[in-house]
Amino acid sequence: MLNMNKNPIDIRQLEAFAAVMSAGSVTGAARLLGRSQPAVTRQIQDLEADLGYALLHRSGPRIQPTSRGLRFHAEVERHLASLTHIRERAEAIGLDEPATLTIAATPSLAAGILPQALAAVSLDLIPRHLHVQALAAENIVQAVLARSADLGISSLPLEHPGLDIHWIAEAPCVIAIGADDPLAANEVVRLADLAEHRIITLANPYRLRHRVDEALERAGVAPDRIIDVNASLTALSLVRAGLGIAIVEPATVCGVPLDGIVMRVLDQAIPFLFGAISAAALPLAPTVAAVIDAARLEALKMPGCRLLEANGIETLADTVYGQAAISEGTPA
């Protein structure tokens, strides 16, 4: 039964538990923290006593987190990160410097747009401590709502009344091909020409993947060899290894070009939709506003990218779900 003791949890206990989870052993945690092994063991035991449930399974020197321990660890990580950010922000206030900034972005946008956007921001706006987190789109929304991230750059849909959406962009997906593949000689590649190839694409069925599947169906392509991945950079690495042809969003291909891979336009436009978000009704710090603008300008450098209206949830729903997901003809 949960211990209802209202005494605050000792931060050293949380640090000990987080270190054990990271190191995989009490001995390793003690080394990380510079504490004795008995001290770490006692802090974990005291934490479990305060909580009223076990965090770790113990079998001799080996330990495994319990199901409750895994769930609690996620909360501990967020709490310790928040304390670190508070310390950093306090230092920035004391020095009259820009506050610590946390940006959450999907892996493709974190790699393909965000670095160039940050490089375009004035140096006097870049804080001493800058945190960039590559997260799944669903987690980005939660991080912004919980205010553990100041800014999110994510694929759509992004429907939530607690969010301010600063811009939405649409860019056509591209095909990434090995430079020595015969299809690389074509400036525009027909989806129908992929019928005999292994196709590499993203896995999430609720975002880009359903548009790719619809496009293949319209082109009469039913691939029997598919590799799905959760990050475009992984798809590009697989292409470079000769494992197939990738249909991906253009941000990673443009922002992180890899030797041996060429990008080609598809004969059908498969829209990749993404945008910049922050918590609703919060004033934007100058650095956040600058990053939002710089990311928008960087996004528009991608081939065929255009801005869409972002003036309400209904408009967003129409943009994501109501438009024709796939249009015939070469994308502009």
Rank of each mutant, 00 (worst) to 15 (best):
E138R: 15
P223Q: 06
A179Y: 05
G28Q: 07
P161M: 09
A39Y: 07
L163W: 06
H79R: 12
S148L: 01
V188G: 08
L130A: 07
V188R: 00
V256E: 04
Q37W: 00
T201W: 03
A105E: 02
V229I: 11
A203H: 14
Q133T: 12
L282F: 05
I175Q: 04
P38V: 09
T66N: 07
L216F: 08
P223V: 06
Q13W: 15
G112C: 08
A325T: 00
N230S: 15
I168G: 04
A111M: 07
A295N: 03
F274S: 08
V76E: 05
A117T: 06
E138P: 04
S327D: 03
I93P: 05
Y53Q: 06
V40K: 01
T252K: 07
G304V: 03
Y53S: 06
Y206L: 13
I63M: 15
E314V: 10
A294L: 08
A184Y: 12
G275A: 09
R306N: 00
H129R: 15
Q45K: 14
T330Y: 01
L55A: 01
T315V: 12
D213R: 13
E196N: 15
I270R: 05
A23D: 09
K301A: 13
L233I: 13
E187G: 15
V239S: 07
R68I: 03
L47K: 09
E138A: 15
T102E: 00
P205L: 11
P8R: 01
E249T: 12
V121I: 11
R78E: 14
R58S: 11
P127E: 02
T41I: 07
G255V: 03
R71F: 06
Q43F: 00
L47R: 08
V239H: 06
S327L: 12
L145S: 06
L80E: 10
A136L: 08
A90D: 08
H129T: 10
A137Y: 02
T100V: 11
L307E: 12
E88T: 10
I175W: 03
I247D: 04
I168E: 01
D46F: 05
A222Q: 04
K301D: 03
L238T: 00
N5A: 11
P172T: 08
T201G: 10
A294M: 10
V221E: 02
D224T: 13
M21T: 00
H210D: 06
